[in-house]
Amino acid sequence: MNIFRLLGDMCHLVAIIILFLKIWRSKSCAGISGKSQVLFALVFTTRYLDLFTSFISVYNTVMKVVFLVLAYATVYLIYLRFRSTYNSESDSFRVEFLLVPVAGLSFLENYAFAPLEILWTFSIYLESVAILPQLFMITKTGEAESITTHYLFFLGLYRALYLANWVWRYHTEGFFDQIAVVSGVVQTIFYCDFFYLYFTKVLRGSGKMTLP
C-alpha cells in the first residue's frame, strides 16, 4: 500500500458515493447511463470472486464488499426505484460491441487459463471501457449536470492515481502487472478529453457542462 494507491481507492469510493447520493437525493437518474453502471457491477462481480478464495487484508475485503454493494444499489436505483427518470433513449450505446471483444480478449491474453483468472482479466479489460456508454450519452445529449461531471472527475482521478501507484510499485518492489497497467493507461486516456472540458468549463463556470 502506498499513498497513490490509497488516494486512488478513496477517489474511486468518493466517485461511487457521489453518484449514488446524487440519484438518491434527487430521486432521479437523468443523464446517467444505466448501461455503464451495469458494466461496473459486472466488473466488480467478476473481479471480486476471489473474496471466496483468497484473503488479502481486512481493508481489501471491506472495500470489495462496499464497492459491490454500492454498484448493485446504484443499478437498483436506476432500473427499479427511479426507473421513470431513466433516459433510455439517450443511453443507446451498444454494449455488445464492448462485451464481445473484451470477453474474447480475456480468453486470449491472460496470466493463466483458469476460470477465476479469465474472469479477473475480463473485469480488468471491461473496466477500461465501461465508462464509454456514459461518455457517449454526454456526447449525444451535449450536456451533463455538474454533479455528474464531479463523479466522472473522481473516477478518472482514481485511474490516474493508480498509474502513479504502478510507477511507484515498479520502482520500490519491482511489481509490474502488464494487463492491469496497459488497461489502466487505456482507461485513463478515455478521460483526458473529459478532464479538459471539466477544468475549462465546469470549474470556471457553474451549472451544467455543455459541449462545444
Partner: peptide, 10 residues
C-alpha cells in the same frame, strides 16, 4: 501448477 495470482489491487 497454475495457482491463480494474488491480485491485491481493487
Amino acid at each position: 501448477a497454475d495457482e491463480p495470482a494474488n491480485h491485491d489491487e481493487l
